[in-house]
Design a protein around this nucleic acid. Structure first.
Length: 303
DNA sequence: CATATGTCCTGAGAGC
DNA sequence: TGCTCTCAGGACATAT
């Protein structure tokens, strides 16, 4: 489930398309229900063919591809989507395919010298097993209004003060609030659990009961967990769905200390067993010993 | 306004 | 073996 570190890894992995020109675009034929795309694929193709990729960037859990001509392709992988260059896990769930070429190679390409042309070509693929991902082509004004204005600060930009300001008056449980992209952008179910474990905070604690000191710990843990997960190219869970841009696995799942570790001994206190509870219809993993509502467990003080 | 719940989608895995 | 059922959780629509 691509969260901030996985989407950041996708963006870094496809950055080599910057400067290339769109030669073709198609929505792949597929027996499955088509993904949500707007405008229609044929219209996107008509708009983008011939334009140049100016910049690849990340906005929360979305991948943005800016083109000359000011249009921006906004890709939301949601649960199982991957933006990649090559080697999709299978053809069945391949949803979109761009063919990109070096600028200026158009003359050669139109002569259909395919062997020479293919060396210059690069693909940009969107693969999505469950098909919950969405793709939108929009102007920068639409991006501002429909996306940016509805997102909180990026997870890597959070500070104790921003946490206190955005979360401090909410009555919701902290774990549930961390998933709200209007409060902070990029955190999902895996990293919310890992952040709260590192911070030593009970996931059921109400936001409006947390102290400045606790927001400080959550802020520090957010930086640490997200940046480490990026260094490990994200988390590929046991279902193997998440891959990087060339179909490799992330490795941060090996560093998970609570997520999907129900029943195992806590790696910090050694006493607790990792518990799984349901909050807002989603699994939450935590150590009931290290993550108590009040007070700082003594084993945390050394960290 | 804030918060809670239902919905979409596919395939893996459990249970019989 | 093959059927049915449940579950996974992104973001948004709708309900309270």
């Amino acid at each position: 489930m691509p969260e901030l570190p996985e989407v950041e890894t996708m963006c870094r992995g496809i950055r080599s398309i910057e400067g290339l020109q769109v030669k073709s675009f198609q929505m792949c034929e597929c027996r499955l229900k088509p993904i949500s795309i707007h405008p229609r694929a044929s219209e996107i193709a008509a708009t983008l063919i011939g334009s140049e990729v100016q910049q690849v960037s990340r906005l929360g859990k979305r991948v943005l591809v800016r083109f000359s001509g000011k249009q921006i392709l906004v890709i939301e992988p949601r649960m199982t989507g991957i933006v990649m260059l090559e080697n999709p896990p299978n053809q069945t769930h391949l949803r979109l395919e761009f063919t990109l070429v070096k600028v200026g190679s158009k003359a050669r390409l139109t002569q259909a010298v395919s062997s020479a042309a293919s060396k210059e070509e690069k693909k940009l693929l969107f693969w999505d097993r469950r098909g919950l991902g969405t793709v939108r082509l929009m102007s920068s004004e639409q991006l501002e209004e429909c996306v940016i204005n509805r997102l909180g600060p990026d997870g890597l930009q959070m500070t104790p003060a921003l946490y206190a300001k955005n979360f401090g008056s909410s009555k919701r449980e902290i774990k549930v609030a961390l998933l709200d992209q209007k409060l902070v952008a990029g955190i999902g179910n895996i990293y919310a659990a890992e952040i709260l474990f590192m911070a030593g905070i009970d996931p059921r604690a109400r936001c409006d009961r947390l102290s400045g000191k606790q927001w400080h710990r959550i802020s520090d843990a957010t930086q640490e967990i997200l940046s480490q997960a990026i260094l490990h190219e994200g988390s590929t869970l046991s279902d193997g769905t998440y891959r990087n841009a060339i179909n490799g696995e992330g490795s941060y799942q090996q560093c998970h200390r609570v997520y999907d570790r129900e029943g195992s001994a806590c790696s910090r206190c050694g006493k607790g067993k990792i518990a799984r509870i349901i909050q807002a219809q989603r699994s939450t993993f935590f150590c009931p010993e290290c993550q108590k509502r009040r007070g700082l467990h003594s084993s945390l003080l050394g960290q």
